[in-house]
């Protein structure tokens, strides 16, 4: 199928990626080749086979409702690129 620059723009926005102008066409061409190749799957008649998201029939893996100590806040914030004493900081994110 044709991977248009509009489609690239759409999925780039969904992925929060902005390819430089120069890279967009090459990326579109590569993805088109890859997606065309993936179309071999349509040769396989999968009918109403149940899509397999989990390879093992494991079910109901649950934990008891028990409170565990939380992490030290400093340890969680230590890696933040922008922070104050108690929070992660971002540019304006509320209306």
């Amino acid at each position: 199928m044709k991977i248009t620059t509009e489609l690239i723009a759409h999925i780039s926005q969904l992925s929060r990626l902005s390819l430089p102008e120069g890279e967009q066409a090459a990326m579109a061409a590569q993805l088109e080749r890859i997606v065309d190749y993936m179309d071999v799957l349509s040769r396989l008649d999968t009918g109403d086979i149940e899509p397999m998201s989990h390879v093992f029939p494991v079910r109901n893996v649950l934990r008891a409702d028990e409170e565990q100590p939380s992490c030290d806040r400093e340890a969680l914030l230590a890696n933040a690129p922008a922070r104050d004493e108690e929070s992660f900081l971002t540019p304006k994110s509320v209306e």
Binding site: S42, L44, T46, I49, E50, P51, V55
Partner: peptide, 10 residues
């Protein structure tokens, strides 16, 4: 489709 193929391969 890929998840169905995964079932076929398994």
């Amino acid at each position: 489709k890929a998840l169905q193929v995964k079932a076929v391969i398994k």
